[in-house]
């Protein structure tokens, strides 16, 4: 084993570690914002309809594939993003109308299994249409490359844009739920399902809307992330599990909880990957520090989740 230190030569240590740390915080924030887009729909659907949707990751994949297909055909990233919203919303609405609505009154076990079945259908269906090789989707020219932030931090512009878009979507979502009539119905639906039906709200339409909204957010996240990752079958499941971790930490049904949970998970994962191997390096020899540090950091968010649930079984912002 040659060389063991990850810090640059002495002299520049303080400056470099500060910018490195700041960059990692931004990375954690960006990852968290992305997870929020994914979790918001999941938690809304659970809060309003009481449904666990394992196929949420498939909608994320649908968004990414739609974006890649449209970008390849038109060359426009904006059109690609719109396509991802439309395709995922449409896919969401279709499965809500045909399948999901039959599951609202079922127990969680049925919901888990039916949506597990949907994953199988979506994944292999996508592979059947698009083939087994990953698709290409690139960052738009205007957002490519890094920019220099105050403090000398070089950061990819596209990731900053994701942070901006994500926070914008979060703000919009909060405004919609707190200010608009649809939002009032959604909140009423969370509080008491029978009551809003009695008030004459067309509950079936509301449910379809909420489900399609959640699907659109997931598809949008898939397209945004697809540009810097790979668009391939099966891309949704790892993110789905992370999104579940997020909403469970935040408290299922709470949008605010999803935001806090997403940021917590994003930060824990990013900083864990970065800091754990280094911190273990102080007490262990380098090669086992890397090995054990990587092993523990890959489990870190699950440890976080178990910790939160033991301390607060309903999550941070969960009710009842």
């Amino acid at each position: 084993m040659v060389g063991g230190s990850y810090l640059p030569p002495t002299g520049t240590v303080f400056h470099m570690t500060f910018t490195l740390f700041a960059e990692q915080l931004l990375n954690g924030l960006q990852f968290g914002v992305m997870l929020f887009l994914m979790s918001a729909g999941l938690t809304l659907v659970f809060g309003v309809m009481g449904l666990i949707n394992l196929a949420h990751g498939s909608l994320y994949m649908v968004g990414a594939f739609a974006a890649a297909a449209v970008a390849a055909a038109t060359g426009s990233f904006v059109l690609a993003l719109m396509a991802s919203l439309a395709a995922a919303a449409a896919a969401g609405a279709i499965i809500e109308l045909t399948i999901i609505r039959r599951l609202y009154n079922r127990d969680h076990l049925d919901q888990v299994l039916a949506t597990f079945a949907l994953i199988l259908i979506f994944s292999e269906g996508t592979r059947w249409i698009f083939g087994s090789f990953p698709l290409f989707l690139d960052v738009p020219q205007a957002l490519s490359g890094p920019i220099t932030l105050p403090g000398g931090i070089e950061y990819p512009l596209y990731r900053l844009a994701i942070i901006g878009i994500g926070l914008g979507v979060a703000t919009g979502l909060f405004a919609m739920i707190n200010r608009t009539s649809v939002g009032i119905r959604i909140r009423a639906g969370e509080a008491d399902r029978e009551m809003i039906a009695a008030l004459g709200v067309d509950i079936a339409k509301l449910y379809t809307f909420v489900f399609a909204l959640g699907a659109a957010l997931a598809g949008f996240a898939g397209a945004l992330v697809g540009a810097i990752q790979s668009v391939q079958v099966g891309m949704g499941e790892p993110v789905l599990i992370l999104a579940f971790v997020v909403i469970v930490i935040g408290g299922i049904g709470s949008i605010k909880g999803a935001l806090v949970g997403a940021l917590l998970v994003g930060m824990t994962d990013t900083l864990g990957r970065f800091l754990l191997p280094q911190m273990l390096g102080w007490i262990l020899e380098p090669s086992s520090a890397i090995s054990i540090g990587s092993a523990v950091s890959s489990m870190s968010i699950y440890i976080l989740m178990a910790g939160v649930l033991i301390y607060r079984p309903q999550g941070l912002y969960g009710s009842g």
Binding site: I52, F244, I252, M305, Q314
Partner: peptide
């Protein structure tokens, strides 16, 4: 749901 998810975790 919390039970489902914590066992998954």
């Amino acid at each position: 749901v919390y039970f489902i998810m914590i066992t998954l975790a």
